[in-house]
């Protein structure tokens, strides 16, 4: 059960948050111009890394803000937390 440092509220228990899967998958600006394969890539394909992973989290039982988390899935260490729209910190 991790402690997540919400960029808006500070450290809170994991039970206050929900995970929204892989981060930095931008919705295509012009979906109609994509082939089925390109759209499927956006829609379905997600990484499932053992190691450093970039994730979206939502402080759903708190400020309800979305933000990004850099987490090592092998040991649950959180290396960075940053707001939506910000660039991911360099590893």
């Amino acid at each position: 059960m991790f402690i997540i440092n919400c960029p808006y509220c500070g450290e809170r228990d994991q039970t206050e948050f929900s995970c929204g899967g892989e981060a930095h998958i931008e919705r295509p600006k012009q979906p109609t111009e994509l082939s089925d394969d390109q759209w499927a890539e956006y829609l379905f394909m997600r990484k499932n890394i053992k190691g450093i992973q970039f994730e979206r989290w939502n402080h759903i039982h708190g400020c309800r803000k979305w933000f990004n988390v850099v987490r090592d899935t092998s040991n649950d260490k959180i290396h960075a937390v940053y707001k939506m729209g910000e660039r991911p910190p360099v590893k």
Partner: peptide, 13 residues
């Protein structure tokens, strides 16, 4: 509500 918030905050800020 959560889904709409998600789009507003992340895709269409």
């Amino acid at each position: 509500l959560s889904k709409l918030e998600d789009y507003l905050q992340t895709e269409w800020p």
